[in-house]
Design a protein around this nucleic acid. Sequence first.
DNA 1: ATTCTAATGGCACTCGGTGCCAAAAATAAA
DNA 2: TTTATTTTTGGCACCGAGTGCCATTAGAAT
Lengths: 221, 221
Amino acid sequence: MNDIKPVPSRAGRGQATSHSELSQIALHLFIDRGFDETTVDEIAKAAGVGRRTLFRYFQTKNDLPWGNFDPLLDSMRMTLARADRNLPLIDALREAVIEFNSFPDDEREMHRSRMRLLLSVPTLMAHSTLRYAEWRQVIAEFVADRLDVRPHDLPPQTIAWACLGICLAAYEQWLERDDADLVKTFEVAFANAEAVFGAALPQQESRHESGRESEHESPRA
Amino acid sequence: MNDIKPVPSRAGRGQATSHSELSQIALHLFIDRGFDETTVDEIAKAAGVGRRTLFRYFQTKNDLPWGNFDPLLDSMRMTLARADRNLPLIDALREAVIEFNSFPDDEREMHRSRMRLLLSVPTLMAHSTLRYAEWRQVIAEFVADRLDVRPHDLPPQTIAWACLGICLAAYEQWLERDDADLVKTFEVAFANAEAVFGAALPQQESRHESGRESEHESPRA
DNA sequence: ATTCTAATGGCACTCGGTGCCAAAAATAAA
DNA sequence: TTTATTTTTGGCACCGAGTGCCATTAGAAT
């Protein structure tokens, strides 16, 4: 909500507002007037800053409801780094993702509102893809480390994309029921993926109809 | 390329151009001048139509490089509908996806260019999310039918999202190597997902640490 | 030729986003 | 206190995407 300015220390004019304050104001306007119905000028006016200034804090209108995402990403990176290396890859991922999406109870309603906005407004849904790319990168780096390949290779990228998909499906489901438990929904979503994708494995070597060996790695998690 | 007008039949002025012609012209301009560097006015001029008219054929500039996607979706729906019901879900999905992404050799370079554009230009990458939603819906409907749940439920949505993720990872990989085989890349991507997500299963009932039964279905593919 | 119909395309306008730059405000130096 | 330095602000003009409105155009039917 309000950032402390620990060291207003060095020279120059003070900031007229803060990143998170702008985000808050915009978010509230979006929630009760609608995203497309709220103009940037209105947000700037509501925040008491010039429109030009607002665009220095946020690159686009679409970025406003996201607030500052980076600390959350760093946090997830840390969680993954701390994961027990004996834990199967998929379990480490599930736990990190759940941790990443855990918020204090008093933030629950705000979180729901924000996510509803992000997932229901087409413009935001689309734009979010760019934010998700950073999120995927965190996952990919972790998976790459575990499989001893580069983050950019197919297996980490595939897993990262798939994890994102699972999370988004879980969120969509969570938003539909007022009483839904987010953590539980994530667990079920992961279980669904495991059931379907794991179904081809039990028959052991059945994946070789198409013959030729691959230059890509087929990881054993 | 050129649509036949089977029945110019009924009254009114003739169309100045066609959907696919506009798409072609725009695509070429995007490819050799860059997406952001090409204005809608330039496209309209190149196509010899008014800017206003162009916006009747395509809702946004972002839609231009996609051409008409719907027939492809219908085709995938058909492929899935024809799938052997004894085939495991995941195999049916893999095959349909591969079929969906198979193009004649002479379209290969064009396809690469288009996909490179769609996956590398941030604006398009973001916008594509909306197209992918339709694609996911096709998958979700198929999965829902197989699992005897509603398309909207968690399992179909999760699988659909995960499939999308797998496909996008495969495409990104394919675009990096001139000589890469798209089909093979898809197969490897699916295999990666199966390996990682299937890893939790072999221990059979190990998914119950967190106790309580779920109101969601946990499908057996 | 006239009428009907449907597509066209120009015009003006809104809104998001950017480059430019003078003015404001805060600190550091004199 | 005054002056110089530094940094942010915010106004202005401008661009490009997208839309509502509407007179015009061109083909088909009468």
